[in-house]
């Protein structure tokens, strides 16, 4: 099963998105929240993200969702630091809330990494008001 890592500047945002996604995919236990700094302050921490990716990997790969700015740069740094460990990990270019929900549903039904990324990136075009 593919794992999911949520990267946000805020631990509350990352945990909150995880809770929200688990409402839709309650049997799925592959979501790891890597929000905020170790001391609880706002920010992103590439080492924390790296450890979350390692935990999330059960052999089928990991998809990472980031919020803005250093959310992505720190995630890229974390992935570079994992080079050579053989983890198939990719960042999805998708809105973090909608993207994680779709990814969790897809992962829970056993979709592979590429399909999860494809489906979650479709949420970029979701209209909220018709």
């Amino acid at each position: 099963m593919v794992g999911i890592v949520i990267v946000s500047h805020s631990a509350k945002i990352a945990e909150g998105i995880k809770d929200l996604a688990l409402q839709m995919a309650h049997d799925y236990d592959g979501i790891y929240a890597a929000g905020g700094m170790e001391d609880g302050s706002i920010g992103t921490d590439a080492v924390r993200i790296m450890n979350a990716i390692r935990e999330a990997d059960k052999g089928d790969g990991v998809v990472v969702f980031g919020d803005l700015g250093s959310g992505i740069i720190s995630a890229e740094m974390a992935i570079d630091m994992l080079d050579g460990e053989g983890i198939n990990v990719k960042i999805a270019d998708a809105p973090i809330v909608e993207g994680v929900i779709v990814a969790a549903v897809e992962a829970s039904i056993g979709s592979d990494l590429n399909r999860i990324i494809e489906e979650s990136e479709k949420t970029r075009d979701f209209r909220k008001i018709q």
Binding site: M37, T44, D45, A46, V47, G69, S70, I73, S74, M77
Partner: peptide, 18 residues
């Protein structure tokens, strides 16, 4: 660099860290 990576918090963490 490793310390800055995990303690700065903003984009300057990975940038200066690298």
């Amino acid at each position: 660099g490793m310390t800055l990576l995990s303690t700065v918090g903003g984009a300057s963490g990975p940038l200066y860290g690298t």
